Amino acid sequence: MIRRAWLLIWLLGGIGLGSAWAGEIAKPGKIKHVVVVWLKQAEEAGRFMALSKQLVDLPGVVDYSIGPALPDKSGSDFHLGIVVTLENRQSLYEYLNHPKHRDLIAKMRPLVERVVTYDFITR
């Protein structure tokens, strides 16, 4: 498996895709930090959202949205979605490592069954 991964990296680098991808990541742009949350108890959504909204005023945050998942036929079973827009990659690093963020994560952790995060650069 590791051999295949190295082969893919070598091939992509050899035909120029590796460096093109690295260049794309290096370009400036706002960052979207997306968090999908499954709660241990759905009734705790209000409490979780109230705690989460305390992160709105952290440095680098341009926009902060949180809300419940829409029920759909695909079987999506998460409870809450959060989208944080940040100034740049440095702002994301500072946001994730900010003492207030770390403290609130510790307070929210007992309410959470599962969390998935995604980060991407906007153009």
Rank of each mutant, 00 (worst) to 15 (best):
Met1Ala: 13
Met1Gln: 10
Arg4Glu: 14
Ala5Asp: 10
Ala5Leu: 15
Ala5Thr: 14
Leu7Asn: 11
Leu8Arg: 12
Leu8Ile: 14
Ile9Gly: 07
Ile9Ala: 15
Trp10His: 04
Leu11Asn: 12
Leu12Cys: 14
Gly14Asn: 09
Ile15Met: 12
Gly16Asn: 03
Gly16Met: 01
Leu17Pro: 06
Leu17Cys: 08
Gly18Pro: 02
Ser19Phe: 09
Ala20Asn: 10
Trp21Ala: 15
Trp21Met: 11
Trp21Asn: 08
Gly23Met: 09
Gly23Glu: 13
Gly23Gln: 10
Glu24Ile: 14
Ile25Ser: 03
Lys27Ser: 10
Pro28Thr: 14
Ile31His: 00
Lys32Phe: 01
Lys32Cys: 07
His33Asn: 08
Val34Tyr: 02
Val34Asp: 02
Val35Gln: 01
Val36Cys: 10
Trp38Ala: 02
Gln41Val: 07
Gln41Cys: 06
Glu43Arg: 04
Glu43Cys: 05
Ala45Val: 02
Gly46Leu: 03
Arg47Gly: 05
Phe48Thr: 02
Phe48Arg: 05
Ala50Arg: 13
Ala50Gly: 07
Ser52Asp: 08
Lys53Val: 04
Val56Thr: 11
Val56Lys: 14
Asp57Val: 00
Asp57Leu: 00
Asp57Gly: 09
Leu58Met: 08
Leu58Gln: 07
Leu58Asn: 02
Tyr64Ser: 00
Tyr64Met: 11
Ser65Tyr: 13
Ile66Arg: 06
Ile66Ala: 04
Pro68Glu: 11
Ser74Gly: 09
Ser74Arg: 02
Gly75Cys: 04
Gly75Asn: 11
Ser76Asp: 13
Ser76Arg: 00
Phe78Asn: 12
His79Cys: 06
Gly81Ser: 10
Val84Glu: 05
Val84Ser: 04
Leu86Thr: 01
Glu87Trp: 00
Arg89Trp: 05
Gln90Val: 06
Gln90His: 07
Ser91Gln: 03
Tyr93Ala: 14
Tyr93His: 14
Tyr95Ala: 03
Tyr95Val: 02
Asn97Thr: 15
His98Tyr: 01
His98Val: 03
His98Leu: 01
His98Cys: 04
Pro99Arg: 10
Lys100Pro: 03
His101Ile: 03
Asp103His: 10
Ile105Tyr: 05
Ile105Ala: 15
Ala106Asn: 10
Lys107Ser: 11
Met108Phe: 00
Met108Ser: 15
Met108Asn: 15
Arg109Phe: 06
Leu111Thr: 03
Leu111His: 04
Leu111Phe: 07
Leu111Met: 13
Val116Leu: 04
Tyr118Asn: 12
Asp119Cys: 04
Phe120Leu: 03
Phe120Gln: 05
Arg123Pro: 05
